[in-house]
Structures are given as structure tokens and as C-alpha cells.
């Protein structure tokens, strides 16, 4: 930092911290959505920096679909304990009672009930007026136009025609009762920025990001990990051990693994840079139609 120059990462960090503090200052009851993934890891790290030496003035909220990788849940609990973070976990119990799962009901229905509906339930129950999310604008086309402060109506719905212009770093935090704002402090970060920051700051991440021998099944060209006994094999399928890792993490039956030998952060970054496909390819929920993410967003998904 000589000559008063800032690297792009320092500048992104400063902007994100500004956003996080602004929410803490202006909203009554904010919450930070914690997905356990790498973006969440960076977002929580930025929040810790924003309020150092104090604790976060808001809790973390994890919407648990009950189908996350076991390693994710273990990592989550240990991470929150070590960092002294208040964690709230919400599960859609109605969905559990109905036995909703990705094998029998498909990715769309499972995601809708256990993730989208569950998130709405949690936000309504918690009366949160602001919810931080780790989404980035470079992830997907429709997100390129998303505001940092994204306004949601009483039903958590997103209306692309009813978003507020965002100028400078002056964020309009005004809401009426029942309305809320989703805040994306990582809006201007790219996947490479996130990985570089994790590398530079030594931020702990779930081991699933690193290559290891894991039991997988190849289905329609995608490698699915057999993470627990609930896995439903199709006729003729048998788990095989392969050296794989995950570029994005979610419900294990919906997260495609990639064969890899990357066991360090530089190797992960190297692999990412050499692979000319963007990360959402591994997410099965996007495959159906090119504008599916926007449809999900209108319904309240992040």
C-alpha cells in the first residue's frame, strides 16, 4: 500500500465493509444468510472485519434443506463456534413431514420447497428487515443487473421494474413495515476475486472444495457424490471412487463434482482459470432454461 495505491482486492474489501456497516447502522433487524460456501466464507470474514474488535451485531441464518453434504454441516458448526458467531438454522418442517427430497421430487420441487419456501418462512418468522446474501453479479446473466440493495415486497418477491436507482455508495435503506431488502456485499466480486481473497486471507473453507477420493455415481454425464445412505441408486448404478472436488456446494444430490487433483488453493485457482466454463455449470438447477435464475428470483430465491 505504498504511494496510497489500493489493490483491487483492498478496494473491494473496503466497499463491502462499507455496505455491511451501512446495513447494521440503518436496519433494525438484519440477518446474514450463510450458505457455508466459499462466497459466504468471504462475506462473513468481511463482516468480522467490519465490526472488529466487536462481535457481529446480527446473527447468521442457515436455511438447511437437510440434504447438504455432511462435511458442510460439520464445517458450519465448528466455524461458528470458533468465530463466536450466532447461528440460526431453519428447516422447512412441512417439507420434511412430506418427505420432500431431490431424488423423488426432482431438483425444481425440492429447491422450491426446501430452499425458496424455507427461506421465506425463516425471513418472515424472524421479522428480518434486511438479509445479506453472498451472490455476485458475475455468476449469471440476470444477476448482472441486480442492485446491491435489492428491494423485496411483503411476500419477499422481486419486481425487476420496481428497483431503486443506486448511485455512488449512497444506499437507500428505507422500507415500510413488512418489506425488506436483500443486500449483496459481494456484488462486484468475481469468482477469481473470491478465490484470491480466500488465498490471501487464509479463510477456512469446506474441504469439499479440495480434491480427494470420494464415492461418486456418474449420472447423465454428471458426477454425483454418494454422501449418505439416503442416496437412491438407479438400476445398474454403483458408487465408484474417484478423485473429485466441487466448484459449488449445495444439496449433495444436486451438486456436480469435477474430476480434479487440486489439493491447494493455488491449484484450485489454476484449475478454474484453465477451465473455460463458468462455475454455475455445476449447479443442476440452472440447466433447464437460460432465464431460470430470474424466474427463481422473482419467487424469492436468492
Amino acid at each position: 500500500m505504498t504511494g496510497f495505491n489500493l489493490t483491487h482486492l483492498k478496494q473491494l474489501e473496503a466497499e463491502s465493509i462499507h455496505i455491511i456497516r451501512e446495513v447494521a447502522a440503518e436496519f433494525e433487524n438484519p440477518v446474514m444468510l450463510y450458505s457455508i460456501g466459499k462466497d459466504s466464507a468471504v462475506m462473513v470474514q468481511l463482516a468480522i472485519k467490519a465490526f472488529h474488535p466487536g462481535r457481529l451485531p446480527f446473527p447468521l441464518l442457515h436455511v438447511d434443506t437437510t440434504w447438504k453434504f455432511r462435511d458442510m454441516i460439520a464445517f458450519r458448526d465448528q466455524f461458528c463456534r470458533e468465530k463466536d458467531l450466532e447461528l440460526r438454522v431453519h428447516i422447512n418442517q412441512e417439507g420434511v413431514a412430506l418427505g420432500i427430497n431431490p431424488f423423488d421430487h426432482g431438483s425444481d420441487k425440492h429447491t422450491d420447497v426446501m430452499k425458496t419456501v424455507a427461506l421465506r418462512q425463516a425471513l418472515t418468522a424472524g421479522k428480518y428487515d434486511a438479509a445479506f446474501g453472498g451472490a455476485r453479479r458475475d455468476e449469471e446473466k440476470s444477476r448482472a443487473k441486480e442492485r446491491v440493495f435489492s428491494f423485496r415486497d411483503k411476500n419477499h418477491g422481486w419486481d425487476p421494474k420496481n428497483q431503486r436507482p443506486e448511485l455512488w455508495n449512497l444506499f437507500n435503506c428505507k422500507t415500510n413495515k413488512g418489506e425488506s431488502i436483500r443486500v449483496f456485499p459481494l456484488s462486484n466480486w468475481t469468482e477469481l476475486d473470491v478465490w484470491q481473497y480466500i488465498h490471501l486471507e487464509n479463510i477456512p473453507i469446506v474441504p469439499l472444495y479440495f480434491a480427494a477420493e470420494r464415492p461418486v455415481v456418474e449420472r447423465d454425464g454428471t458426477l454425483i457424490m454418494v454422501d449418505d445412505e439416503r442416496f437412491q441408486f438407479q438400476p445398474g448404478e454403483k458408487p465408484q471412487t474417484r478423485r473429485v472436488r466441487f466448484r459449488t456446494l449445495g444439496c449433495y444430490p444436486l451438486s456436480g463434482a469435477v474430476e480434479s487433483s487440486a489439493t491447494t488453493l493455488p491449484e484450485i485457482i489454476q484449475e478454474m482459470l484453465l477451465t473455460k466454463t463458468s462455475e454455475r455449470q455445476g449447479r443442476l438447477i440452472d440447466h433447464d432454461q437460460s432465464a431460470s435464475m430470474e424466474k427463481k428470483k422473482r419467487e424469492g430465491y436468492f
Partner: peptide
């Protein structure tokens, strides 16, 4: 550099301007 020396590449990319 990405394929030959990823660490050198990363060091280079840590000092970017925005």
C-alpha cells in the same frame, strides 16, 4: 503463467488496480 507458475500468476494478480 497460469499453467507454468500459478503462484507467480497469483502474485501478479494481487496487485491489480480497479
Amino acid at each position: 503463467l497460469i499453467s507454468t507458475d500459478i503462484n507467480a500468476y497469483l502474485a501478479q494478480h494481487e496487485r491489480k488496480e480497479l
